[in-house]
Write a protein that binds this DNA or RNA. Structure first.
Lengths: 219, 219
DNA sequence: TCCTCTATATTTAGCCT
DNA sequence: AAGGCTAAATATAGAGG
C-alpha cells in the first residue's frame, strides 16, 4: 500500500519539512475546531498564532478580534474571577507548594523563579540590590521590563475600556501563584509544577500513552 | 445498535446539557491538541477559556503562562498590515507619551516608598486591588521604571559601559492560541461578536457542507 | 450529574501530483 | 510548494451505568 500511515511518535518532529507541514495542517485543524466550538456551543473564540514559519502573526477571526478578547482576558482581575471560587485554604496550599517548587527550581537553575524571587526580595527589602551579581541584575531587568510592558498594556487597555476600578494589578501576585482551575485533562500535574519556559524539555512532551489513552482523567 | 452516533448538525446545540457536555469534551480535546502542537512542532502555546460553565477563566498551561504569551503578543509591534483599520496603535502611542511625561515628574518626586508599599502589598495580595485607581498603577509603573534605571545604572557601572539592558522582552511565544468563551458576565461590549460573525461569512465558518462532508470530491 | 463505552466522524502523516 | 488522497489515529456524540 502506498498510503501507509505509520504510527506516530509523539515527540518533536525531527524533519523540518515534515514539521512544517504538520504544523500547518494542525493549525488549520485547530482553527476549524475553534470555529466549531464557537458554533456548537455559542462560545466566543479567538486565536493568535505566531509561528516561526510566518513572520506575521496570524489572528483569527481578526487581529482586532483577538486583541479585544485578549484585553478582556487581561482585564479579568484574579481577585474577582479566580480566587473567589477557590477556598482560601486550597489557594494557600497551592501557593505554598509553588513557593517550595520555586526554591527547588532555583537550585536547578531555572531562571524565572530565581528572578522572581530576587525581585520580590528586593521589593521586600530583604535583598540589597547592590549585592546582586551582574547576571542577576540583567535577568531582573529583563523580568521587570516584561512586567512593565504588561502593566502599561493593561493600563492602556483599562483606560481604553474606561473602567478604572477593575485594576488588574493582581497579576503581580499571579506571577507567583499558579491558579489551579479544574483542568481535569491530561497534563494537570505539570501545570502545577513546571515553568512554561522549560516545559517542553520535561514532561510536557506527549507520550504515546498520554496521547493515545482514551481516558486520561485523574479519577 | 446502541451506540448509534448520528450525523451531527453543525449548528448551535439546542439542548443545554448536550451543549455543555460537548463543550467540555471539545475543550479537553483542544487542550490536548495544543499540547501536541507544542510538542510535535516545538511551538509554544497557551490557551485561555472563559466559559459560561465556569466563572473562573481557565488558563493553560497556566494563568501566568497565558499572560506571558499574551503580553508578548500584545508587544508585537503592530506594523503595517495588522493595524490598518485599527488605530489602537496610535492610541497606545499617545498613552505612552503621556506616561513618559508623568514618569518624568515622578522621578523628581520622592514617593517611592509609598509606591513600593503598594506594589509589595499587591504582590502579597494584601492590598485590595480594586481600591487602586489609574493613578496608582501609573505610579507603580513609574516606580518600576525608576527601579530599572537604578539597576541599569549599576549594571553599566559593573560592565564598564556595556550594552544597555532595557531588553526587548520578546521572550518567546512562537504561538499562542487563545480560545475564549462566553463573556456575558463581563461588562465588555460585544463588538467582538460582529467580528466573529463577519469572519464566518468568509471561509472559516463551519457549514454543514464544510464540516460534515469529509470529502465531497470523490463520493 | 459525571463517568465509561464504542460506533462513527473527523483529523492528519505520509505519499502522491 | 500547495493541494489531493487514503488509511491509521484520534476525537467525540450518544447511550448506558
Amino acid at each position: 500500500m502506498v498510503n501507509m500511515r505509520r504510527k506516530t511518535k509523539y515527540s518533536l518532529i525531527e524533519d523540518e519539512a515534515s514539521r512544517k507541514r504538520s504544523f500547518i495542517k494542525r493549525k488549520k485543524g485547530m482553527m476549524k475546531k475553534l470555529a466549531q466550538l464557537s458554533t456548537l456551543c455559542d462560545i466566543k473564540t479567538c486565536a493568535v498564532i505566531y509561528s516561526p514559519y510566518n513572520p506575521d502573526p496570524e489572528a483569527w477571526p481578526s487581529r482586532e478580534g483577538a486583541e479585544k478578547v485578549i484585553s478582556d482576558f487581561m482585564e479579568v482581575p484574579m481577585d474577582d474571577r479566580n480566587k473567589r471560587s477557590f477556598d482560601q485554604e486550597r489557594f494557600l496550599r497551592v501557593r505554598i507548594a509553588k513557593e517550595e517548587a520555586k526554591l527547588q527550581k532555583m537550585r536547578t537553575g531555572n531562571q524565572n523563579f530565581e528572578i522572581q524571587n530576587i525581585m520580590f526580595g528586593c521589593l521586600k527589602g530583604e535583598i540589597d540590590v547592590h549585592k546582586l551579581g551582574e547576571k542577576d541584575i540583567q535577568d531582573l531587568n529583563s523580568f521587570i521590563d516584561t512586567y512593565i510592558n504588561k502593566l502599561t498594556c493593561r493600563q492602556n487597555l483599562m483606560e481604553n475600556g474606561g473602567s478604572s476600578s477593575r485594576l488588574p494589578l493582581s497579576v503581580v501576585a499571579d506571577a507567583v501563584v499558579v491558579p489551579v482551575g479544574d483542568y481535569d485533562h491530561m497534563n494537570q500535574n505539570q501545570n502545577q509544577q513546571n515553568l512554561i519556559q522549560r516545559q517542553k524539555d520535561d514532561d510536557l512532551a506527549i507520550t504515546a500513552a498520554d496521547v493515545g489513552a482514551p481516558n486520561t482523567t485523574n479519577n
